[in-house]
Simulated assay, not measured.
Amino acid sequence: MECAQRRLNVFGDEFLSTQRLLVITPHADDETYGCAGSIARIKALGGEVYVVLVTAGDLAHYEDGATKLVTHETRLGEFESVMRLLKVDDWEVLFTDAKTHLTLDMMPRKELVRVLEADGRLSIDRVRPTMVMIPAPSYNQDHEALFRACVTATRPGVPSQRHLVPLVLTYDNTSLFWSFGQDRFRPTCYIDISAYLDLKIQAMRLHASQVRPPIYHGSPESLELATRLRGREVSVEAAEGFEVLRALL
């Protein structure tokens, strides 16, 4: 029983309170879908959280049978509001040009890895995180390219020569339901965010340009249902699911 209880508390308050978390998000709102509740919980417990937004650009959205332009200034304003709501320690935006947005798959991986690993203001070498959360691969080309770059940037190395991140996790996204076979997202660990579900949904609503009707899979209402479903998978009110890529505990 004692051993089982210890396993249940791997992501308990004591552990999370000591974490220095680095979240890498392809677009503004992906961090909210995937791990806003975990960010809020870690911050409330006294841990540190840093967020790197890789790309924000102008984008035409479908709306009522037509398209509507959402500017990168709008997306950045929404993102910054979410960062302040979640009380993160710092955040960085890497690319805001139209050429890069939604074309990370066209960027040489070496260049993207260099920024994430060493050159960025909040790079892995500079933040020296104890935990990194990265997007799971999906049908979105930016998510796929960033996932591959993050795997490279967090590769094992000699600890005396470069920082080795002990815990590397991929986070959920509403787009992941539309995948098949081995590509399907299968969480292998969960963080209980029952006390932070309302804050997660509030953060989603701050991404106002992305809010859609309740029936849409990425709406705030659907996000709440999905988060509660993750919770039911592990018998809590609400949870965020992750796949563990590395756990050096």
Rank of each mutant, 00 (worst) to 15 (best):
Glu2Met: 13
Leu8Asn: 11
Val10Met: 12
Phe11Trp: 15
Gly12Pro: 09
Glu14Tyr: 10
Phe15Gly: 04
Gln19Tyr: 08
Leu22Asp: 01
Val23Tyr: 04
Pro26Ile: 05
Ala28Leu: 05
Asp29Lys: 10
Asp30Phe: 01
Glu31Ser: 09
Glu31Ala: 03
Thr32Lys: 07
Gly34Phe: 01
Cys35Leu: 02
Ala36Glu: 00
Arg41Lys: 15
Lys43Phe: 07
Gly46Gln: 01
Glu48Asp: 13
Val52Asn: 03
Val52Arg: 00
His61Thr: 07
Tyr62Lys: 12
Gly65Glu: 05
Thr67Glu: 13
Leu69Tyr: 02
Thr74Met: 08
Arg75Lys: 13
Gly77Trp: 12
Phe79Ala: 13
Ser81Trp: 12
Val82Ser: 05
Arg84Asp: 11
Leu86Asp: 06
Val88Glu: 00
Asp89Cys: 08
Asp90Pro: 03
Val93Pro: 06
Leu94Val: 14
Leu94Ser: 02
Thr96Ala: 06
Thr96Tyr: 08
Thr100Gln: 06
Leu102Tyr: 12
Thr103His: 15
Thr103Gln: 14
Asp105Tyr: 07
Leu112Met: 12
Arg114Phe: 11
Arg114Thr: 04
Glu117Ala: 04
Ala118Ile: 15
Arg121Gln: 06
Leu122Asp: 00
Arg126Ser: 06
Val127Ser: 03
Met131Trp: 09
Met131Val: 14
Met131Asp: 09
Met133Phe: 10
Tyr139Asp: 03
Asn140Val: 13
Gln141Met: 12
Asp142Thr: 09
Asp142Tyr: 05
Ala145Tyr: 01
Leu146Val: 03
Ala149Arg: 01
Ala149Thr: 03
Thr154Lys: 00
Arg155Asp: 02
Pro156Gln: 01
Pro156Asn: 02
Gly157Glu: 13
Val158Lys: 15
Pro159Ile: 02
Pro159Lys: 04
Gln161Tyr: 09
Arg162Ala: 10
Val165Ser: 05
Pro166Gly: 07
Leu167Cys: 15
Val168His: 04
Leu169Met: 06
Leu169Ile: 02
Tyr171His: 14
Asp172Glu: 15
Asn173Ile: 01
Ser175Lys: 14
Trp178Ile: 12
Phe180Ala: 12
Asp183Val: 11
Arg184Phe: 03
Thr188Pro: 10
Thr188Cys: 11
Tyr190His: 14
Asp192Trp: 07
Ile193Pro: 07
Ser194Pro: 02
Asp198Pro: 00
Gln202His: 08
Ala203Tyr: 11
Met204Leu: 14
Met204Tyr: 07
Met204Glu: 02
Arg205Cys: 11
His207Glu: 10
Ser209Lys: 08
Gln210Met: 08
Val211Glu: 04
Pro214Ile: 05
Ile215Ala: 12
Ile215Arg: 15
Ser219Phe: 02
Glu221Lys: 09
Ala226Met: 11
Thr227Asn: 07
Val234Thr: 09
Ser235Gln: 09
Gly241His: 10
Leu245Tyr: 06
Leu245Gln: 06
Leu245Pro: 06
Arg246Trp: 06
Arg246Ser: 13
Leu248Asp: 15
Leu248Trp: 10
